[in-house]
């Protein structure tokens, strides 16, 4: 059994609702979907017990159908990356901060806030990033309907 397969099986053993939610795309690339309600326990397990101790990035995206996806890319020391995706509704897009696990998550979470208008519960107040200070309120450029012209309108 390959290393990736081993990681997948252990995860499913621990959380049986993850059955059918984990995909090994290729060597060293694991993708999985998790409901927002289960996110914290699965993420906690991956970081604290499964060895994914580095944060590569957090990707936020507008998937259409009134859904946003947030993907947490975390890596281990064996060269593998686990991409854990959770979906949140557009009308109340909220995730919990993971700065308790990774202090460096701060900057990626601010990107979610600035570029997609996702709320991050528990994130310290701070200066906005990465958009300029004079960026208009309520304009989130990575939302699909946002067009460049809108900013100056």
């Amino acid at each position: 059994m390959s290393n990736e397969e081993d990681i997948k099986q252990k995860l499913i053993e621990k959380f049986n609702y993850m059955d059918n939610a984990v995909t090994i795309k290729r060597e060293r690339r694991i993708f999985a979907d998790v409901a927002i309600g289960h996110f914290t326990e699965v993420f906690d397990y991956l970081v604290r017990q499964a060895g994914f101790i580095s944060l590569c990035a957090i990707t936020g995206m507008d998937e259409g159908n009134n859904t946003f996806a947030v993907i947490y890319h975390i890596s281990n020391f064996g060269g593998a990356v686990f991409s854990l995706r959770t979906r949140i509704p557009r009308e109340n897009p909220t995730v919990k901060t993971i700065t308790g696990y990774f202090a460096s998550a701060d900057i990626y979470e601010r990107e979610l806030m600035d570029l997609l208008g996702i709320k991050v519960d528990g994130l310290n107040e701070g200066r906005r990033y990465p958009l300029p200070d004079n960026w208009p309120q309520g304009q989130y450029p990575l939302r699909k309907e946002w067009k460049r012209e809108a900013k100056n309108a």
Partner: peptide, 30 residues
């Protein structure tokens, strides 16, 4: 797919999501 590369300054990460058209759905660069 998630691409990784050891740039001179360290690990570079690109996440790409495609939708079957000639333009990507999302490109994330770290």
């Amino acid at each position: 797919a998630l691409g990784r590369y050891e740039a001179p300054r360290g690990e570079d990460v690109h996440y790409v999501k495609s939708n079957g058209t000639e333009m990507p759905d999302r490109v994330k660069i770290r």
